[in-house]
């Protein structure tokens, strides 16, 4: 086994995981919202990007941008429908509603794009960068760099700006925030749009690495869940670190044991955590 190569693969996989998880981390930490449609939103964003790439002459960057905008609009629509449940913090109903949304998105994607697997082809996936006996593609480098930048920016915005403070205030007490002149409802919409945009960004970056299917999306939710729980709910820095570690775990587990059971192995890690340290899950 080429340890250095596995480590690189692990970091690439890990930054992909972290990238996919970022939107949800904010959503859950800042707004106590769970979004079971997360995986299907990832799937839909990937398909929109693929569709534009294959049906028009538009290049990858622009197709990605259109896909992100489309998902942002979808995010607004979903949040408007869920508005009342969000304000009353009816978390159980919200969870089921997002599950329903996920199922709708899967159906819609099936209607629009069919059931066959596809691949998003970008030039960056074909460009190999070689150092000695390790190599990676330009796309993978892009995933890694963009993820680090995104996490940095999100952390700065949340901790250092007034907008970030507003998000944190609404997370803590949406009712009190109203007395500070904050429109909690719009803040929730903004946070949800951010989630939609970030998951779409993750999709257009990460999805080109593997074939896409309209039935995908479950693994993304699981891995995101593990990252959010192990990293500490709402903890952006923790999510990045856990994402990277899970990537390395996946890479080495796949190489040393078997790639078929990686999700199961990751979940075993989570279960061990749930049993050993359930208080780590308290949501404040």
């Amino acid at each position: 086994m080429n340890v250095a190569q596995q480590a690189i693969n692990g970091l690439v996989i890990g930054s992909g995981y972290a990238c996919v998880a970022l939107g949800w981390t904010i959503l859950l930490g800042a707004a106590r919202l769970v979004n079971f449609a997360h995986g299907q939103m990832y799937m839909l964003a990937a398909f929109i990007c693929w569709f534009i790439l294959t049906r028009s002459g538009i290049g990858y960057p622009l197709a990605a941008a259109i896909s992100i905008v489309a998902m942002a609009l979808l995010g607004v629509g979903m949040q408007l429908m869920m508005g009342r449940l969000v304000m009353t913090q009816n978390l159980t109903s919200l969870m089921i509603v997002t599950l329903g949304f996920g199922y709708i998105l899967q159906g819609v994607a099936g209607l629009l794009f069919g059931g066959a697997p596809h691949t998003i082809t970008t030039e960056l996936v074909q460009q190999k960068i070689q150092f000695g006996d390790v190599w990676f593609t330009s796309q993978e480098l892009l995933i890694f760099v963009v993820t680090l930048i995104l996490y940095g920016v999100v952390w700065l915005v949340l901790q250092r700006t007034r907008q970030g403070a507003i998000i944190r205030s609404v997370a803590e007490d949406p009712k009190l925030a109203q007395l500070f002149g904050i429109d909690s409802r719009s803040v929730y919409i903004a946070i949800f749009v951010l989630e939609a945009v970030l998951v779409a960004l993750a999709a257009v970056l990460v999805a080109p690495r593997t074939p896409i299917l309209t039935s995908m999306g479950f693994e993304e939710v699981i891995i995101t869940f593990v990252i959010v729980v192990l990293g500490g709910i709402g903890n952006v820095g923790g999510a990045l670190i856990v994402g990277m570690l899970l990537g390395l775990f996946t890479s080495f587990f796949g190489a040393l044991v078997t790639p078929a059971y990686t999700t199961a192995a990751i979940f075993a890690v989570l279960l061990a955590f749930l049993i050993a340290k359930p208080e780590g899950l308290r949501t404040r």
Partner: peptide
């Protein structure tokens, strides 16, 4: 009662 944000 609670009238400031404790996390801020």
């Amino acid at each position: 009662g609670k009238n400031v944000f404790s996390e801020l």
